[in-house]
Design a protein around this nucleic acid. Structure first.
Length: 209
DNA sequence: ATGGGGATCGTCT
DNA sequence: GACGATCCCCATC
């Protein structure tokens, strides 16, 4: 079993964290030993001063976890029916986080299908931020949860670093805001993964992170 | 107290 | 490709 990512991993530039999370493994471990897991293949960075970030207009009750310690979850409810999960990054008080947009399921497919639907193909179980949360059973009650405690039920395991040639970088999906926010290339994907959401352009290089 | 908008998704055409 | 579901959050009055 791989080591869990520690707080120091998340306590860095949000873009470095997002890029570095590709290939790592999101894990939810139940007390009874049941384990849900998947390899992270798509992530986006949201930062202070970023018009697309929930932290842009300052701290509110909803986004408060974004201003807390790195390595904690920030889960929000949107469009009246969906949850999306971030991991807080950069540094405490900064207001930055990485949105997890897709993982390739590994362990716990049956439980994921129980939540998502029996007929959903594997590559679609956790494709898109809201589908990911549904498959993993994550909702508002997880917002603020510390993924870096020794015995946390939700955490990230180290994985192989994805080689630069297999990483594509694009603007973020579905964001509003100014031109800077719209064009910022802060979405990282594992090129060719069937679990990546949308239709990423085949671009094998971006900022060196 | 009220109202507009939202880091989405699935279905329909 | 368009649209509707559905409700919480927050800014403003």
């Amino acid at each position: 079993m791989s080591p869990r990512l520690e707080r120091a991993f998340f306590d860095r530039d949000t873009r470095v964290v997002a890029r570095g999370l590709l290939g790592a493994r999101l894990v939810r471990a139940a007390p009874d030993g049941a384990r849900l897991s998947g390899r992270i293949v798509e992530a986006e960075a949201y930062r202070e001063g970023d018009a697309a970030s929930h932290s842009f207009r300052g701290r509110t009750p909803r986004n408060a976890p974004m201003f807390g310690p790195p390595g904690c979850a920030y889960v929000y409810f949107t469009y009246g029916m969906h949850f999306c999960m971030n991991i807080v990054s950069e540094r405490e008080g900064f207001g930055a986080a990485v949105l997890l947009r897709a993982v390739e399921p590994e362990d716990g497919l049956d439980e994921m299908r129980r939540r998502r639907g029996a007929h959903v193909p594997v590559e679609r179980l956790c494709r898109g931020p809201a589908n990911l949360c549904k498959a993993f059973g994550l909702d508002r009650s997880w917002s603020g949860y510390d993924l870096c405690q020794a015995d946390s039920a939700l955490f990230v395991e180290a994985g192989e670093r994805i080689p630069e040639a297999l990483v594509c970088v694009t603007p973020r999906v579905g964001v509003r805001g100014d031109a800077t926010a719209l064009s910022a290339p802060w979405r990282w994907c594992v090129d060719g993964s069937p679990s990546v959401s949308g239709a990423p352009p085949r671009r094998a290089s971006g900022p060196r992170l």
